[in-house]
Design a protein around this nucleic acid. Structure first.
Length: 807
DNA sequence: AGCACGCCGACT
DNA sequence: GTCGGCGTGCTC
């Protein structure tokens, strides 16, 4: 029997990013298994931390020549991380340069992370005076409450040394199970019958209670149900409890975020030929099984979801489970209902709108194999499904699949890892696949499945591009072109709805010429220069090139060159002025901050309470209103101005996506795109719904610029409260990196981030671009080790592998 | 992260 | 001389 456990402790630092050996007390030996949480003493003081058992062995292996400490408590009855999860956490830590403990915790519901309280406790020898002055009669007080000054701390240390008080670390488990009161008979059947004779004549309710208890056959029934079923009040039940007829016992219940009861069952829809081909190929891979990755490419309305659902059904028919990832923003109640309508109680939903308790309950349903289908956003990729038969990732190009803080993982990478582990296929779905994914399909690494037709044969909306340069010459500065205003008025008259999107990205951080649409670019990188008001310069965030802010347009010598940007509020104001009769709903970060506000605004718009919906990017996704026949994009180019090589890709994706919002039902739609760059390829290809054209063109651009998918990238960011320190460290880092990496690898920067100061910190970044870099992992790991000392001094270093944002 | 150890300056 | 400031290194 295992005597020693290898434990991963909850101390996220570089030095402690490895297992520690602990003795398993005899009483626990038969129970402790890898993947369970334990509480262990750690460090020289009385500190206790939570940890995960990674392995159990008989001998201390690897040997530690010191005395082993013993595990304090075992938190779980069954492992919370299975062997797949343990292996995944290791891989994730290595591939994202983060700590394994952080990865393990990321994979579990937040409530399973321990909370620590440092307490000061009384001992047997605590003097009475101290019990009153310090503890106010309590047996323990939070350490921080009584140790605020250095003098107090030293006094406490003295008391502790004398044994008058002791320090104690409380490790709190935040995971609580919700319970209901349940009724269990306390007497056997014969005694319950006998008890009927003891009740006073005419006590009908008491009799009903006894009769009810007799029907339980020793089972436990929820008090609420019992009370309804036998028409006895809680008071009667309480009397029964006092008479010793019954016991009240807690029954564990799940917090059900979506009442399953009122969801209508839906039947599989008839597939068109293309959909059928896709389903057949996916199902074949599920059945074989084969770890094929499919790219399911289909325009809005081509019926991707139906392909997913029927493929999932095939996995379930094989006795396997399925995981369906969707971007947070498309995880709407409609979407959930559609999946639940098909698979009922087999579905578990995981997304950020759930309370932490609800997430925990859904997680447990999956863990206990009570749910076979999981629908969720990014972190659902870690759902503890066993026997996984299919993984689906809808809208695979969405940026929200990448986590912004440590561990900086991309759900797609995790999905592919799990597909290897489970030997199951992955389906990546999108109307506008990321270049990385589409390029892999081109090379035959992924299998491409195409849905070219819209299921209802409805044509894609007509897209008109409005040149705002000429518009501005015609009339004063307005956010609305004449053509768009006329179209809006027309929809108002016909009682149809309109959606207006304002692209908020890149808000006034670059300069644009209002006469010719010229955006100042870096001579070295062909990427827009960013305006820095602090230094009054234009900077390139790739190579660090810097130049003066132009007063006249270098292209057409116009004076109309200025920062570009506007807000939704301003737009709404102007629109109310222009169209006073229109009912307008505005959706942006301000109006959707409150929980559920997003869904509420959408449902108001959906039920026709407004004529026009104004919003930021968030309205481009996941809304489907049949009465919307006009979509206007007020400023298509702001994203183009960003100093990011993915600017064109994002713009193209966004415009394509928002265009899909127009005219989905019986009415055909029209899209107006207002731009200062009417000839930009991203806008032109979006106008013609030409993903292929865009892909080919953009691939050429990436090839020329030496960007992904032709190169891999790693971003290293340093931040400090003192700008000089951050900058200095990054220049030192550059010198340190150069000799360690292959000569063909490019190191760009260091450059300051456009928003130089966030949370009073200054940010600098270095980007490493490489095709093949055998020294990369070792170099970055060394870097993490060597920067520890500086981390303590306040300099923060972050490594982001394949970052999505370069600003 | 938290804690102890250890080495320097300003006090009893 | 000692108390306590913080820099350094370790935690099974």
């Amino acid at each position: 029997m295992a005597q020693i456990a290898q434990v991963l402790v909850d101390v996220p630092t570089m030095q402690t990013n490895r297992p520690y050996s602990y003795r398993i007390p005899a009483a626990w030996r038969s129970q402790v298994q890898p993947g369970m949480r334990v509480v262990v003493p750690f460090g020289r003081g009385k500190r206790r931390v939570q940890g995960f058992v990674l392995a159990c062995n008989d001998e201390d292996e690897p040997a530690y020549d010191g005395e082993l400490k013993a595990i304090d408590t075992v938190v779980d009855l069954a492992p919370v991380l299975n062997s797949e999860a343990l292996a995944l956490s290791k891989w994730l830590a290595d591939s994202t340069f983060s700590f394994q403990i952080t990865c393990a915790q990321t994979m579990l519901p937040a409530v399973m992370r321990a909370k620590y309280v440092k307490l000061l406790r009384t001992t047997a020898t605590t003097p009475t005076a101290i019990q009153t002055t310090l503890f106010h009669g309590q047996t323990s007080v939070p350490f921080d409450d009584v140790a605020t000054t250095p003098a107090q701390v030293s006094e406490l240390l003295r008391l502790q040394a004398a044994g008058a008080v002791e320090v104690y670390f409380q490790v709190k488990n935040q995971a609580h199970h919700k319970t209901m009161v349940g009724i269990t008979a306390a007497l056997d059947q014969a005694d319950l019958v006998a008890a009927e004779k003891t009740v006073r004549a005419g006590a009908a309710k008491q009799l009903a209670l006894l009769k009810g208890l007799q029907t339980l056959n020793g089972e436990t029934l929820a008090q609420k149900k019992f009370s309804e079923q036998f028409a006895v009040s809680e008071a009667v039940i309480r009397t029964g409890e006092q008479k010793g007829w019954l016991k009240k016992t807690p029954i564990e219940v799940y917090r059900d975020p979506y009442a399953t009861a009122n969801i209508k069952a839906t039947k599989p829809l008839k597939l068109n030929d293309e959909q059928q081909v896709a389903v057949d190929r996916i199902v074949a891979a599920v059945q074989q099984p084969a770890k094929t990755t499919f790219l399911l490419e289909g325009v809005t309305g081509s019926g991707k979801t139906e392909v997913y659902l029927q493929s999932i059904a095939a996995a379930l028919a094989q006795g396997k489970t399925a995981l369906m990832l969707v971007p947070e923003i498309s995880l709407t109640p409609q979407m959930v209902q559609r999946v639940k309508g098909r698979f009922g109680k087999a579905v578990a939903v995981l997304h950020s709108g759930l309370s932490s308790g609800e997430k925990y309950d859904e997680w447990r349903r999956i863990k206990r194999q009570e749910a076979q289908v999981v629908v969720g956003a990014r972190s659902a990729v870690f759902a503890p499904l066993t026997n996984l038969g299919l993984i689906i990732m809808d809208e695979e190009h969405e940026n929200s699949y990448k986590q912004d803080d440590a561990p900086r993982y991309h759900a797609r990478q995790v999905a592919l890892w799990r597909s290897q582990y489970h030997d199951c296929p992955v389906v990546l779905g999108s109307a506008t696949p990321s270049l990385e994914t589409r390029a892999r399909a081109e090379k035959g690494v992924y299998q491409r499945l195409l849905l070219a037709d819209r299921v209802n044969q409805r044509p894609l909306p007509k897209v008109s591009i409005i040149d705002m340069k000429t518009e501005l010459q015609k009339h004063a500065e307005s956010n609305f072109s004449q053509a768009l205003l006329v179209a809006l008025q027309d929809r108002l008259d016909r009682h149809e709805q309109s959606v207006l999107m304002l692209n908020r990205r890149g808000y006034s951080s670059f300069v644009l010429c209002r006469d010719c649409g010229f955006v100042l670019k870096c001579p070295n990188c062909d990427i827009s220069l960013t305006l820095h008001m602090d230094t009054h310069t234009m900077k390139c965030h790739y190579c660090g090139h810097e130049e003066a802010i132009p007063r006249i347009c270098p292209n057409c010598h116009s004076h109309q060159i200025r920062y570009y940007g506007t807000g939704t509020e301003k737009v709404e104001e102007e629109l109310r002025d222009l169209l006073p009769d229109a009912r307008i709903i505005r959706m942006d970060n301000d109006t959707t901050r409150k929980k559920g506000a997003h869904a509420r605004l959408l449902s108001q718009f959906g039920s026709g309470e407004a004529d026009i919906l104004i919003g930021t990017q968030m309205i481009a996704k996941g809304l489907d209103f049949p009465n919307v026949t006009l979509v206007g994009v007020l400023n298509a180019d702001t994203a183009l101005g960003l100093p990011d090589f993915r600017a064109s890709e994002r713009t193209f994706q966004l415009l394509t996506q928002v265009s899909g919002r127009a005219g989905r039902a019986e009415k055909s739609g029209h899209v107006y795109i207002q731009t200062f760059n009417p000839d930009h390829y991203a806008i032109r290809f979006a106008q013609h719904h030409d993903y292929e054209g865009f892909f080919k063109y953009e691939m050429r651009m990436r090839h020329q610029g030496g960007y992904p998918p032709y190169y891999f990238t790693v971003q290293i960011t340093a931040s400090d409260l003192d700008e000089a320190i951050a900058a200095k460290r990054m220049y030192q880092l550059l010198q340190w990196l150069k000799p360690r990496l292959t000569p063909s690898t490019q190191i760009l920067g260091p450059t300051p981030k456009p928003i130089a100061r966030v949370n009073r910190r200054y940010y600098y970044q270095i980007v490493i671009k490489y095709k093949r870099e055998p020294n990369l992992a070792a170099t970055l790991t060394t870097l993490l080790h060597e920067t520890q000392v500086q981390q303590r001094q306040g300099l923060q270093i972050a490594i982001d592998v394949e970052p999505l944002h370069f600003m």
